[in-house]
Design a protein around this nucleic acid. Sequence first.
RNA 1: GGCAUCGUGGCCGAGUGGCUAGGCAGAGCUCUGCAAAAGCUUGUACAGCAGUUCGAAUCUGCUCGAUGCCUCCA
Length: 493
Amino acid sequence: MQLYKNQKIKVYNSLSGKKEEFKPINDGHIGMYVCGPTVYSNVHLGNCRTFMSFDMIFRYFKHLGYKVRYVRNITDAGHLVDDADEGEDKIAKKARLEQIEPMEVVQRYTVDFHNTLQKFNFLPPSIEPTATGHIIEQIEIIKDIIEKGFAYEVNGSVYFDVVKFNEANNYGKLSGRKLEDMIANTRELSAQTDKKNPQDFALWKKAEPEHIMRWPSPWGDGFPGWHLECTAMSTKYLGKTFDIHGGGMDLKFPHHECEIAQAEACNGSSPVNYWLHANMLTLNGKKMSKSTDNNIYPNEIFSGDNKILSKEFSPSTVRFFMMQAHYTSILDLSNDALLASEKGYLKLMDAITTLKSLDFGSKTEFDINRWQQKCYDAMNDDFNSPILIAHLFEAVKHINLIKDNKESITREDKNLLEKILNTFVFDILGLTSVNDTNGNSGKLEEVVELLIQLRNDARLNKDFALSDKIRDQLLAMGIQLKDGKDGTTFSLI
RNA sequence: GGCAUCGUGGCCGAGUGGCUAGGCAGAGCUCUGCAAAAGCUUGUACAGCAGUUCGAAUCUGCUCGAUGCCUCCA
């Protein structure tokens, strides 16, 4: 029997504003779509947090035995640059600045994106479609929307008629906005526009002659509007109605609102049952922004080459830090917070190492089955990873007590505990052990064991100058010796 | 200005009507050649004001503050 039959999950649905019991459309199967990155620059740490939250959710569903089709797109076309430049594609602009082909930019930053995610130990999604690979599908959807009467063509561009849509539907239901308010708050734009109403959004944009990225369409050469790709790809791979749509909170409006409108205009039904939004990551209490220098890239954290943090931090430390907060909460990254997380992460990893070498006794004082269910309950409650981690530290406490012979554990329970811990720590939270991160082989272990022996000989001879030298110099290299009752162990810090 | 998400002890972060996380830091003790590590013990917190209630950090209203979005673009 699959685990999911016993574990009832509740998720916070942004659409209803409530926690709801999660029921997939098809028993045992889950379709999940998450808005991916725009590959015109290096991946932003805030994006990483969003994707990491959904990576954890994906991992948990899989662990429960669901067959999950997880689609996360790559946006590689069709996005316009900030204010000044009119109608110029973001990717095309960057390409011109750097004197290379648009697809070269796309390739470079897609590789960066994948490299970074790999360092964070992400699972690859089931499908990672690109916007440029689905131009035909997008054109078909535009035709459909025009046919249904919710879009109009002007001068080679096609716009979605929000006002008309709102007559029979509710535009703004996801973000809690009312069309009347939006209209009332719109300032008069002096710019010339082809739109009937300022609220209308582009489904297809005409390409000016100098525009590099362009595709033929029934309305002339152009490129798709940016809300459309997600509708096209989610519909193609997950169907007209699917289970979960995720993304960053910042995408709620207008992007996700427009996706709903497009799909409802086409199909007459709501495209998504559960909308999940991950909250923002701030840096030292302020939003990350390139212009104010309040910004840090993942690689700068891993290398320590930055002006914000006092030292380098491993991807697993950062992952642990992020998992210690609930995905719907704003999380603030700071040096102190990372230092604290690093210690906590190492403590957890140490306990897992300790567990392997534990002696077993005739009884177990620790109710492992009950504890296991508490871990599941945490995850079932809207993927509450911080609560899960709190429970994991309960196990850490017991492991250390057993090590100090203050408690005991049977052989079977020890194996069970090891299995459960591995599941939650590595499979679900997606953490990696310290050794994996550093890529060390067994040789290091042997060398350190030798040094420990030499040091112990020195201690027996009361040559503390030598023994302390070994200890201190190892520590300086990041290898910490730990004298316990049953001899000396070490861990990498 | 509007919409949204929030404001929890020295720091980071759960909880969300009475039971009441966890991590880091601090203090004391145990262990130790000395440390470190580990264990045990130790924390009168819930932005402010008013209200509802037998009881509120948790509900309601207002105020202040933070973050995101407000259709060009993500």
